[in-house]
Design a protein around this nucleic acid. Sequence first.
RNA 1: GCGCCCGUAGCUCAGUUGGAUAGAGCAACGGAUUUCUAAUCCGUAGGUCACAGGUUCGAAUCCUGUCGGGCGUACCA
Length: 610
Amino acid sequence: MKSTLDILEATITNVMTEVTGQKDCSALVRPATDAKFGDYQVNGVMPLAKQLKTNPRKLAEQIVAKLNSATADKLSDICETPEIAGPGFINLRLKPELVAANLLQISKDAGQFGIEKAEKPKTIVVDFSGPNIAKQMHVGHLRSTIIGDCICRLLELRGHKVIRQNHIGDWGTQFGMLIAYLRVLYKDKLKQPDSVSIGDLEQFYKNAKHWYDTDPTFADSAREEVVKLHNNDKDTLSVWKEFVKESRRHYQPIYETLQIDLIYAHEKGESFYKDMLPGVVAELKKKGLAVESEGAVCVFPVDSTHSTSSGQTSSPQAGFKDKEGKPLPVIIQKSDGAYLYATTDLAAIRYRVGELKADEIIYVTDARQGLHFEMVFTVAKMAGWVKPETELVHVTFGSVLGEDGKPLKTRSGENVKLKELLDEAVERARKVVEDKNPGLPEDEKKKIANAVGIGAVKYADYTNNRTSDYIFSFDKMLAMEGNTAPYMQYAYARVRSIQRKGRDKGIEVDKEIAQSQSISLTEPSELDLAKHLIRYGEAVSSAVSDYRPNYLTAYLYDLAQKFSSFYNDCPVLDASADKRPTRLLLCDLTAKTIEHGLHNLLGIEVIEQM
RNA sequence: GCGCCCGUAGCUCAGUUGGAUAGAGCAACGGAUUUCUAAUCCGUAGGUCACAGGUUCGAAUCCUGUCGGGCGUACCA
């Protein structure tokens, strides 16, 4: 089912082309900026008039005349007579009958809410989360993990084939440090690696890192260990395996807590590509792209986007520069022979395009890796490892900041552990539940606290524009007022409560909804809610097309607010017989939409009772 | 130095290829409760969209410059 917005866009664009003969024009239909302008506004007439050097209002009149004529009969099924306003806007108001019909249609479109599937489903690899082995997940992993998960769910809803990839950091220099450290100080641990806990690993790693940074001799031995690991040294490898296992025991439960759809099968960490690395280097050398520089094997990418735009002849070194203005390389093999993350990322691109048949690869990592990916993407293109139509997308996000506006850290300056952060959220939510609803049974309280606490953390993140940094505040995210998880969950609980009460009173809620053939939207808040309900697909579209979950949360918050207004204005169970089925339907669809958005797309629990 | 991102109400943030009078929430103030859960709703007030130019019918949005902040910038990821 096409969204109303898409139909309007197509219909009006066609008419604009008919009227002017311009092929590349666009109606630019957008939601109205103010309810008094109707439901949608056409913004595309003014730019078109400019292009044709004609009066925009006059052009709008011609277009509206055509829209009102018999040939454009589709539009009169959807909207009231279009109105011209301001410098050349065309305002559109949906007919209540259209709203009613859509509402019925959506309520029968189980699970899909009238959301259209992609015309050409693609195979899309989404690379997200990527925790480091031997370190606990910290707040820095939160955004990649949950934003990546949401992007996957959105794409799946649109009918794409999504391949989730957890590119865990299990093969880097840090292992060299760790093992070199244990070799000197904790030989016994190396003999019994399965006895080492994640906490131990982290402490060892921290000590090793400090040592590495301050003692060149130790740094050398660490690098030797990396080489041994990379050469598949048996003993080193078996120790490594146990450490990876222990780390997995740590992060898998966190995924479950966060309702992230990542399992062992999605895990293709750095080590997965280890045997492909020599081939990557060899092929880049063979193609003449990789050269030796200062002892390392390097590719100097030529940034095509920078060199072709201005029309000037590009210098051979156009693109990436270092501090001194010299060409900046992608180092694919260090002077000691070890490989780097750029090498692994290149191998991964090859694998994803070649083996997984990816049409698009999405990387969900923080913005600081922007240059890295820009360069790696350029090298992959130079090497011909991606097709021209293959899309490589770096979906970036900002940092999580503390109340002081600086990156969130503990008092002692360490990264905040994700587990501890989530535990605290649940604990605080628990206090709120205790405060608001002390009479609930224990297990119910526990369930609610969990849903609210975890939901609050996720929702707060989703609701911020992913590209900007945001300030993490338990108080704000757990507030019942405003655009928060508890507010959304409460709105849901209230709808469900109506339905429960109805059944208690002997009203056959489901039957009444199923049998309602016609809908009467008479109250303003009914119509307002109904109009919003039929626009869920638009919200999903805008969220998925720009990979921005905050468009979805904004929609859901609007929905909850509109429902609350409706709830205040319109009795449901005590409504007259001609109104009740419509109102029950509005409630039902509100509940289902909130549940779908919150639970299915954002992975946040809804609660029947709060 | 160069590159990328950012600067919007007292605070936290939205703002969809440039569109109408820049929007929410919190905090403040004023109303609504014999309740289908008030963890709610309705209203009032609050702005030189960092600053200065430019592009045009129209700029928070695009361009140039300035100031302020963050991040990145050859063997970490």
